[in-house]
Design a protein around this nucleic acid. Structure first.
Length: 581
RNA sequence: GGCCCCGUAGCUCAGGGGAUAGAGCGGCCGCCUCCUAAGCGGCAGGUCGCAGGUUCGAAUCCUGCCGGGGUCACCA
């Protein structure tokens, strides 16, 4: 149930009736007609811009349209009052029964309240994390992982068919480095001293890999040349790293549906056929690129390369797909990978990338545009950096100094759920401060705590009711008589609850899971406010000793708020708290 | 130099065509014989970076500047 879309439908019906009556001309475009909560509650419950939007195309004064519309809307039993205001706004005040209905709907639909069919029939692929399989995940990956996962949940909640996907970069030189690093640990496991040369991965996490290699190969590789063992060790170590990464993701509460391998694109003709598809469109050619303006790379030299004409699809310059030695650039398998995603029938591709990949966006969009014939949009969500704080100071990370923070460190110190919520309290393209002290603080400075506290209070009310002998299970609350839920303070909370389905749609359309977090904070704030009103005015307490029916209507309201908090937290991947400790 | 992102209260940030621009923190003043004060209410604080343009209406869209960050061909 979405009260805003219901009322918008009523407005559109009324406008159509006015067209039928000849008050408005036929053929008006009504797509810009909106029904929204006004900024100022004094203006009513909902406002529509219909008169102002239609005035010009209809050739009528906004005032005249608004007044005729107001008369019509005012006749509907759902509308208490419709009045024209300002330049032609139409402010609506709805009957209390509408808000009571929202409370009941939240209880009836439970965690499905707010679920929509917005994305019905739309297959979406969300590719995120895609960390190189060369070591454990670090903080830099965490935000992208949390964002991608929450976005996927949000889209699923709005009716999309969602696939969560991880692209394993196991095809480049970095996995050779991994193999060599693991080999040194293998030598170490065999009692030799490892030579972790400059450029190899020094991390301890490869020690067990070295031991596992010894387990598998004994000492048989020790005297062999690299060409003998590299491929096997690479495959073994990569698999071990992916095991570790899956474990890291699981610790964060993230589960992928599909893992795709870059390496699997090589030697299978996939890259060649993707490039051929582009070549057939005349988008591949041999040529030289102009030197970039401004600071030149020191070793710049003009050379002929195989290029993708990405400028034909909105890019600034064409991009090389093949190195001068004839091997593919990183871009080539990426072309094949995105081609593969298009061929798997997705209607929308989303890539979640670090902000440092900003320069890569246009060429990816160009590829997808070309290879899907413009059918499949690619959205790239760039994730800005996370700045860590500890003891009031920025926490510097350095791989060399060994002070880089792993995902496990963060999860162990802050907890997976707190981490998830805090990472989602900022939009993806804004930098985020993550303060280890703050996120664990139990106060309203800490949004996770604040929202959890609100939910715990709802649970507390229900426990209290039980102690007072008042039935307050969901089945009872669904049948509660909500007619007495009429106080302005109570309806105000119900109105916030009514916004939830609309908010979910807006968040899903904009692919902005942070809106969920902000909404939950506001909802929690409204609940805390009502709770405190109970301090001054005993009649506003949820539990009214000795008055079962009244208590149940008030508890139903609280429970409805709790249900929405649960639903919202579920999208963010956070479990609601039953009580605070 | 090109491209991308950002610029809103002292600080950290929401809002991204609609009415008098919001929240938290910080500052000041209040609220517990009462469901968790881990909370709530109020006050103070703004030329929404600047200048044009589009529009009935611009913090929001467009253009150009200014400031900050990112990124820029045989790395992935």
């Amino acid at each position: 149930m979405n009260l805003f879309s219901d009322i918008r439908a009523l407005v559109i019906d009324s406008l159509n009736a006015m067209v039928a009556e000849g008050v408005l001309p036929a053929g008006l475009d009504m797509s810009a007609v909106a029904v929204e909560p006004p900024r100022d509650a004094a203006h009513g419950d909902m406002a529509t811009n219909a008169a102002m939007v239609l005035a010009k195309p209809a050739g009528l004064s906004p005032r005249m349209i608004a007044e005729t519309l107001a008369t019509r809307l005012g006749a509907d039993p759902r509308v208490l009052l419709a009045e024209v205001a300002g330049p032609g706004f139409l402010n609506l005040r709805l009957a209390p029964a509408m808000w009571q209905g929202v409370v009941n709907a939240a209880l009836m639909e439970g965690r499905d309240f707010g679920r929509s069919t917005l994305g019905k029939g739309v297959k979406v692929n969300v590719e995120f994390v895609s960390a190189n399989p060369t070591g454990p995940m670090h903080v830099g990956h965490v935000r992208g992982a949390v964002f991608g996962d929450a976005l996927a949940s949000l889209l699923a909640f709005s009716g999309h068919e969602v696939t969560r996907e991880y692209y394993i970069n196991d095809g480049g030189a970095q996995v050779d480095v991994l193999a060599r690093s693991a080999f040194e640990r293998y030598r170490e496991a065999n009692g030799l001293s490892p030579e972790i040369r400059e450029g190899l991965y020094p991390g301890d996490y490869l020690i067990p890999v070295g031991e596992a290699l010894k387990e598998k190969y004994g000492d048989t590789l020790l005297d062999k040349g690299e060409q003998y063992w590299l491929a096997d060790v690479r495959e073994f170590a990569t698999a071990e790293m992916m095991k570790m990464i899956r474990g890291d993701l699981a610790a964060l509460g993230v589960t992928m549906d599909v893992y795709s391998s870059e390496k699997a694109l090589y030697g299978t003709g996939k890259i060649e056929s993707a490039i051929k598809a582009l070549r057939d469109m005349g988008l591949i050619y041999e040529g030289t690129l102009e030197a970039p303006k401004g600071k030149l790379p020191e070793d710049w030299e003009e050379r002929e390369q195989t290029l993708f004409r990405s400028t034909a699809h909105g890019d600034d310059v064409d991009r090389p797909v093949m190195k001068s030695d004839g091997s593919w650039t990183y871009f080539a398998p990426d072309i094949a990978y995105h081609f593969d995603k298009v061929q798997r029938g997705f209607d929308l591709l989303i890539d979640v990338l670090g902000a440092d990949h900003g320069g890569y966006v246009k060429r990816l969009k160009a590829v997808v545009s070309a290879l899907s014939g413009g059918r499949v949009p690619l959205e790239v969500k760039l994730i800005q950096l996370v700045k860590l704080w500890k003891n009031g100071e920025p926490f510097k990370m350095s791989k060399r100094a060994g002070t880089f923070v792993t995902l496990r460190d963060v999860v162990e110190q802050a907890g997976a759920e707190v981490t998830r919520f805090v990472m989602l309290t900022r939009k993806n393209d804004a930098p985020l401060d993550f303060d280890f002290d703050k996120v664990l603080e139990q106060s309203k400075d800490n949004p996770v705590f604040y929202v959890q506290y609100a939910h715990a209070r709802v649970c507390s009310v229900i426990r209290r009711a039980a102690e007072a002998g008042i039935a307050a299970d969901d089945a009872t609350l669904r049948a509660a008589d909500l007619a007495q839920l009429a106080h302005e303070a109570e309806l105000s909370l119900a109105k916030k609850i009514a916004e939830w389905p609309r908010l979910v749609e807006i968040a899903a359309r904009g692919q902005e899971p942070h809106r969920i977090a902000f909404y939950l904070y506001e909802l929690a704030s409204d609940l805390h406010a009502l709770w405190n009103r109970g301090n001054d005015d005993a009649s506003l307490r949820f539990v009214q000793e000795g008055n079962v029916a009244t208590s149940q209507s008030k508890i139903a309201l609280a429970r409805a708020a709790g249900v929405v908090i649960s639903a919202g937290l579920a999208i963010l991947g956070v479990t609601p708290a039953e009580e605070m400790r």
